[in-house]
């Protein structure tokens, strides 16, 4: 049998996903058992493969929230007693102590500077159907929509407060004109001094949206470290960046319906079914397929709150001449699940 290490590397992805033919799989097993070195090579491959799973596992834990819980438990009677001793000591050795505290402050200052050079990046992910709310180090309030991810430093240093967004988030930025706040969403960059706005940057879409509620924001498109397109938004305006054309288009919108998700609401105001379907599929993390193109143009008006997918689809069915069918989620060999699929078609009479 001619089975080399290269052949092993080639087959590994299929092997690990459980997608190999019986013959290949048996060959792989033979190769693994042939020598301890081979087995070690297999283990190293698995580790490299799984390193990303490990990172995802770490990201499940949010040090930001945990630290707030822990902070409440750190005050001790012990430290109060220590303060009393300190006061007594202070009464006796006023001068030497002053000198010492001077040294301590100096020391703390260099320490702070050193810590700032080693900024820790934190990632918060919002699971399907959930909105996560949290504060950043500068006091900026963030609402993170379902299936979204925000990367930010635990301290903001440098000229800008920069964060990285996948998915959708609403920001209420704390004012600080000396350190503007920047949201990076793929090539699109949103820059503000202090204001409230919504950014939608879903990975599966080729358009990014920014909706401004209050204040003023600047949008720019970054390509190869150069800004190729610039635009400003006024309150009540929406900026849409299209990856294909590389242009930003602005228009006036009803802000409410874009930010209703913060309170767990889905609002549609004279929206085309194509738009309704897009937002429903994000909200419920399902794939919605429109079977009859005619449906896409239907205009729809509705408010949803806390309804599940089936309830929403039933309401849709009552108010428009459409019908739906659903598939179940299927388990993949790697333990993950496929997305549920929903098919919309015209009601047959």
């Amino acid at each position: 049998m001619n089975f080399s290490i290269d052949r092993f590397d080639e087959l590994f992805p299929g092997y690990f996903a459980g997608e190999l033919s019986d013959e290949d799989r048996i060959n792989m097993d033979h190769w693994r058992n042939a020598s301890p070195e081979n087995e070690l090579h297999y283990i190293d491959s698995v580790k490299a493969w799984e390193s990303m799973t490990l990172l995802r596992e770490m990201e499940n834990f949010n040090s930001f929230e945990a630290l707030q819980k822990v902070n409440g438990r750190l005050k001790t009677p012990g430290s109060a007693r220590w303060m009393n001793v300190l006061k007594m000591a202070a009464a006796i050795f006023v001068l030497p102590l002053l000198a010492y505290s001077g040294y301590l402050t100096q020391h703390n200052f260099t320490l702070k500077k050193m810590l700032e050079e080693h900024v820790v990046t934190q990632t918060i992910t919002s699971r399907q159907g959930m909105v996560t709310q949290f504060l950043l180090a500068d006091g900026t309030k963030v609402w993170l929509n379902s299936n979204s991810e925000l990367q930010f430093p635990t301290y903001f240093i440098g000229d800008f407060r920069e964060v990285k967004l996948k998915g959708e988030a609403y920001f209420e930025v704390t004012k600080n004109k000396h350190q503007p706040f920047r949201v990076n969403a793929k090539e699109l960059r949103v820059e503000v001094l202090g204001t409230s706005f919504d950014v939608a940057n879903y990975q599966d879409e080729t358009m990014q949206e920014v909706i401004l509620v209050e204040g003023k924001v600047g949008l720019s498109v970054r390509q190869d470290d150069k800004s190729t397109e610039n635009s400003f938004l006024q309150p009540g305006q929406r900026g849409v960046y299209c990856e294909k054309t590389g242009k930003i288009v602005t228009d006036e919108v009803h802000v409410d319906k874009y930010i209703a998700w913060r309170d767990g609401n889905l609002i549609f105001r004279d929206d085309k079914m194509a738009e309704v379907v897009k937002r429903l599929s994000r909200w419920f993390n399902v794939e919605i397929v429109i079977n009859d193109p005619e449906i896409k143009g239907y205009i729809y008006k509705a408010n949803f709150r806390n309804e599940n997918l089936e309830q929403v689809l039933n309401l849709l069915k009552i108010s428009a001449p459409i019908d739906f069918s659903m598939t179940e989620r299927k388990a993949l060999p790697n333990g993950e699940f496929t997305r549920q699929r929903v098919f919309l078609s015209k009601k047959r009479t």
Partner: peptide, 22 residues
């Protein structure tokens, strides 16, 4: 498979830990 080869080489010093994920 090509990507994995590079990752395996580059991540070598981080590898002992990743077994945990298994």
């Amino acid at each position: 498979s090509n990507g994995l080869k590079i990752l395996r080489k580059e991540l070598i010093e981080y590898l002992p830990v990743c077994l945990v994920a298994l």
